[in-house]
Each structure stands twice: as structure tokens, then as C-alpha cells.
Amino acid sequence: MPSDGLLSIGELAERAGVTVKTVRFYSDRGLLPEAGRSSGGHRRYGADALDRLRFIRSLRALDLPVPDVERVLDAEGPDAAGEAMEEAVAGRLRDVGSQLVALRWKETSLRLLRDCAAGERPERLRLLGALPAPPDTDALVRFWRRALPARLPRPVVSTVLDAVVPRPPEEPEPGQVLAFARLHALVTDPRLERPEFRPGPPLPDGAYRPVVLYEGLAEAYGLASAEVLAGRAPHDGGALDCFVAAYARARGEADTPDFRRRLVGLLALDDSPVLPRYWKLAAGLFAPDEPVLGLLHHHLSVALRLQVHGPTV
């Protein structure tokens, strides 16, 4: 050490266990202030630079980004420094959590490829290879935005999307990964551009008020969900009456036996194969206590048909 008590860049690097290049990088970023320069123009550092460099190295060892390290070091006072540290650590924890979720999806995808029969592998590879890890829900959201009536207000659309778009589980089972891959393939199928594959509107016959319909259906599905969770299928009264009333109010009609007969026919008009397939794949991606709207809609439609026409012989 020079007689002035300052450290050269090489001495500082050696004591901290880093390279000279690393010390120079932090110095150039302003994270490691110099105490001065030698007569030959070489950098010199004070004794406090060693503790500061070790602190920086500890933060970087946890992969905290350099800008976050800068904010921690630039904070004035212990309270501000502590707050900056908490924010940096919290952000890094979120990043690590996202990386772990991605790794779980990749691991499960690889297991699906390893454990399937050889004849199934090409299709699985195609499905899984098209799915990001972890998958996002952008394609599912686009699918539903195209299927929903154009006149729905944004808050209603958001409520519907929250209810119909399943969130990718953080610790997926193999069946969930495969279901999500198939669901993604379904909603991105080019055949959806063809009318016979595209899901039809909820009320194709005549004018109706979409907001009234979707708000009423939300209430009906809530009642039906409570009945299903209690082990009962929707039946006369309760959720079924609310379900029919939503359609009647949306069309500006009264809930009469004649309307119920016509509603059975209206509900049967959409013969697109997409939505039944969607709900079958999505069912296992919702939480056990989370209502699957497609299944609830099916239960209520069946209950209405049985009420109007009786059981099929």
C-alpha cells in the first residue's frame, strides 16, 4: 500500500476478490468513487472503498441489476437506503419467481415429451413448441374480445375476461400444460376466420342490449356456481329463473312460457365446435372452487330444455 494509505486499483481488486476490469467498471459508473490519482494518473482508492466494493459485490452476487445497486448506494440516510434495498430485493424476488415458473413449465413440457408414446411425440412437440414458458394469455384474450359484442363497455369486458380466461398455474401438472397448449392452438387456429368455426353471438335473433344480458348472466352464473359447489345441479327457480330473466330483459320481453320455448331454440343455434372444445380444455385450468362459466351455461341451458320439453326418452 502506498505511504498515503490509498489503494491502487490492483490492490483493491485483489483484496475484494474481483478483477481490475470489475473495479474499473464500477468506478466508471460512479459506484466506486476514487480518492485521487497518482502522479502517473493511476486511480487511488480510500480504505472505505474496500467495504463499498464488497457490498456491491454481495448485491451483484444476488443478481440485483446495476441500476438497483446504484439506487441503494445513492440513497441518503439509513432509512432511504433501507427502503431502496427492500424495493430492490422485492423486485429481484419477483424476477426469480417468474424464472422459476418458466422453468417449471419447461420441465413439465420436457416430461410430457419424454413420457409419451413415440407416435404422439410429433404432435406434442408442435403444440408445446408453440407455447411460451410460462404461457401468457394474450391469444385467449384476443379470442374472447372478437367473440364478445362490440358494444360492451370496457368494465363489463374486463369482468367477462377475468371469468373466462384461465390463468396459467405456477406449478402446472402435465395435464394442465398439455391442456393449455391445446387451448392456445384452438384459439389461434386459422379456421376461426371461417364463419362455421367462429363462435356466434349470444342472441343471434333480433336486437338486444348486451350490457343487460351480460350483467344478468353474471348474476345467474353466480347463483348456479353456488348450487354446483353445494352438489346440486341448477333446476327450476333460483339460478335458472335469473338466467332466463337476463335474456328476457336484454330483449325487452317478459319471461313467459312462450319466451322460454323460444329461448331454448335460440340457445341451440350456435353449433360452432369451438366453444365446447374451449370449455372442455379450460375446465382443468380453473381453481377447484372457481366457476367454469361454460359448464355453468351448459347446466342452465340443459335445465331450461328439460323444463320446457321434459326429459328425452
Results as ranks from 00 to 15, higher is better:
residue 198 R to S: 12
residue 1 M to K: 06
residue 84 A to C: 08
residue 16 A to G: 11
residue 28 D to W: 08
residue 4 D to Q: 04
residue 273 P to Y: 05
residue 57 R to I: 00
residue 163 A to F: 01
residue 85 M to A: 14
residue 167 R to C: 02
residue 199 P to I: 07
residue 210 P to H: 11
residue 60 R to F: 04
residue 8 S to L: 05
residue 149 P to C: 08
residue 277 R to Q: 12
residue 9 I to P: 01
residue 148 L to M: 10
residue 106 K to S: 01
residue 165 V to P: 05
residue 239 A to S: 12
residue 104 R to Y: 05
residue 28 D to C: 04
residue 255 D to Q: 11
residue 291 P to T: 04
residue 76 E to M: 04
residue 59 L to Q: 07
residue 102 A to D: 03
residue 299 H to K: 00
residue 204 P to Y: 04
residue 60 R to N: 04
residue 127 L to C: 04
residue 80 A to S: 14
residue 184 H to R: 08
residue 35 A to P: 08
residue 206 G to S: 13
residue 34 E to R: 04
residue 265 G to F: 11
residue 145 R to M: 10
residue 92 R to E: 13
residue 156 V to K: 05
residue 241 D to R: 09
residue 57 R to A: 05
residue 110 L to A: 14
residue 271 D to S: 13
residue 136 D to T: 02
residue 269 L to R: 14
residue 274 V to K: 05
residue 122 P to W: 15
residue 296 L to V: 00
residue 302 V to H: 12
residue 109 S to R: 03
residue 286 F to T: 04
residue 239 A to I: 07
residue 112 L to K: 00
residue 91 G to A: 12
residue 153 P to K: 13
residue 199 P to N: 13
residue 218 A to N: 09
residue 165 V to G: 05
residue 116 C to I: 09
residue 236 D to S: 15
residue 155 P to K: 12
residue 77 G to Q: 07
residue 75 A to I: 07
residue 241 D to E: 15
residue 88 A to Q: 04
residue 27 S to T: 14
residue 116 C to E: 14
residue 91 G to S: 12
residue 99 Q to F: 12
residue 123 E to M: 02
residue 182 R to Q: 11
residue 276 P to T: 09
residue 9 I to Y: 02
residue 40 G to D: 07
residue 226 A to I: 01
residue 20 V to N: 10
residue 13 A to R: 13
residue 167 R to I: 02
residue 108 T to Q: 06
residue 40 G to K: 13
residue 113 L to T: 07
residue 104 R to D: 01
residue 89 V to N: 01
residue 171 E to T: 08
residue 119 G to A: 13
residue 120 E to M: 06
residue 210 P to V: 10
residue 143 F to S: 06
residue 175 G to L: 14
residue 298 H to A: 10
residue 12 L to D: 09
residue 14 E to Q: 14
residue 287 A to L: 10
residue 14 E to R: 15
residue 150 A to R: 14
residue 214 Y to I: 06
residue 98 S to H: 13
residue 271 D to T: 15
residue 180 F to L: 05
residue 99 Q to W: 14
residue 309 H to N: 11
residue 219 E to N: 09
residue 163 A to W: 00
residue 307 Q to V: 11
residue 197 F to E: 11
residue 269 L to A: 15
residue 27 S to L: 08
residue 278 Y to N: 01
residue 126 R to V: 00
residue 265 G to P: 03
residue 303 A to R: 03
residue 124 R to Q: 06
residue 93 L to I: 13
residue 276 P to D: 13
residue 23 V to H: 08
residue 67 P to R: 15
residue 199 P to K: 15
residue 89 V to Q: 02
residue 214 Y to F: 13
residue 86 E to N: 03
residue 169 P to R: 02
residue 99 Q to A: 13
residue 274 V to N: 07
residue 126 R to D: 08
residue 309 H to A: 10
residue 44 R to G: 00
residue 296 L to S: 02
residue 67 P to I: 14
residue 302 V to S: 10
residue 218 A to F: 14
residue 207 A to K: 12
residue 240 L to P: 05
residue 80 A to D: 11
residue 254 A to K: 10
residue 279 W to V: 03
residue 128 L to F: 08
